[in-house]
């Protein structure tokens, strides 16, 4: 029975761990986004063969490196496994919050980042997970595309799409100067008073929560639940049928006797108990042969 219990706990733990690990993996690839597409490339970004080919940029919105190796790209949702990105290549790994560009030129012999379909003749482009079934992201390309103007997310990984003022392969789509949160905070609160008020309130709230918790925990600990429940049971069992709640003379006498015996038998020290412990002593001068032999002078 015990073994069965342990086994079920182990199975449960294994199941939880399995779910967690699969979720983590799924979250990594599911954080990839199609970020920017150039369908008609005449004088834009040049590939490693010196060609102006259509290109597509992916953005890793996660805060860990994601490997695109093994994933599928397609321009037909009915054929999700049209192009598999080669596994085991270091160039398919995207650093956190970073980008990777593929060429949709229908020249897959030119390298693993050259697709086997042409973006300029595609109605859409989609990214599928390594299982070939889970759709990660898709973008429709049925807009009227302009030459050398990219279609992309207004902010990296964001939901709003549009034609971008500047094409930014392998770079941030938002080309305006980004103001950091610290700079924004500094502009709104130049004296630091706001920070002091907010932060001190938060520090106090966090520690006040601890105070409230431990104040009440201390109260809970001072209650002796065993004695309380025992007393309730005694009271319930000794309660007279008429409900007067008074103890009889016999009960009082018994309590007095019990208290008397208890107090008289109290003592400060436990009765001394002698024990004989065998001490291992391999050598003693008392048993030494040297002292048992007469040393006659010559």
């Amino acid at each position: 029975m015990l073994f069965k219990g342990k086994l079920s706990i182990q199975l449960l733990l294994f199941g939880v761990l399995f779910c967690l690990t699969t979720t983590v993996k799924a979250q990594s690839t599911m954080d990839l986004r199609i970020n920017e597409v150039l369908v008609m490339n005449q004088a834009n970004y040049i590939d490693d063969f010196g060609q102006h080919s259509p290109w597509i940029e992916f953005f890793n919105s996660a805060y860990n490196t994601v490997d695109m190796g093994g994933l599928y790209l397609t321009n037909d949702l009915e054929k999700p496994t049209m192009y598999q990105i080669a596994k085991g290549d270091p160039t398919t790994k995207i650093a956190p919050q970073n980008y990777l560009v593929f060429w949709g030129d229908d020249h897959s012999t030119r390298g693993i980042r050259h697709l086997n379909f042409d973006l300029s003749s595609s109605k859409l482009v989609a990214l599928f997970d390594a299982n070939g079934r889970t759709l990660i992201d898709v973008v429709k390309l049925d807009q009227t595309h302009r030459t050398d103007t990219t279609y992309g997310r207004i902010t990296d990984g964001g939901s709003e799409w549009g034609f971008l003022d500047k094409s930014t392969p392998g770079a941030n789509n938002n080309t305006k100067t980004v103001i950091t949160s610290a700079e924004k905070f500094g502009m709104v609160d130049p004296s630091g008073l706001g920070m002091a008020v907010i932060a001190m309130s938060v520090v106090f709230s966090a520690l006040a929560l601890l105070y409230v918790f431990f104040k009440n925990v201390a109260k809970l600990y001072t209650i002796d639940y065993r004695r309380l429940s025992a007393r309730k049971q005694v009271v319930a069992s000794e309660k007279p049928a008429d409900g007067s709640g008074e103890h009889t003379g016999e009960v009082n006498a018994a309590i007095a006797m019990a208290l008397h015996l208890y107090r008289n038998q109290l003592h400060d020290h436990e009765n001394t108990v002698l024990t004989i412990r065998k001490v291992s002593r391999t050598y003693s001068p008392w048993s030494s042969k040297i002292y048992g032999v007469l040393n006659n002078s010559r």
């Binding site: 004296s191 630091g192 920070m195 002091a196 001190m200 520090v203 106090f204 006040a208």
Partner: peptide, 22 residues
Amino acid sequence: PKLILIGAAAQLGIFGAYALAL
């Protein structure tokens, strides 16, 4: 447990120095 709150009050130094640094 009320001594916990003293630990919160003394953090005033952090935000005082923050304001001075600004």
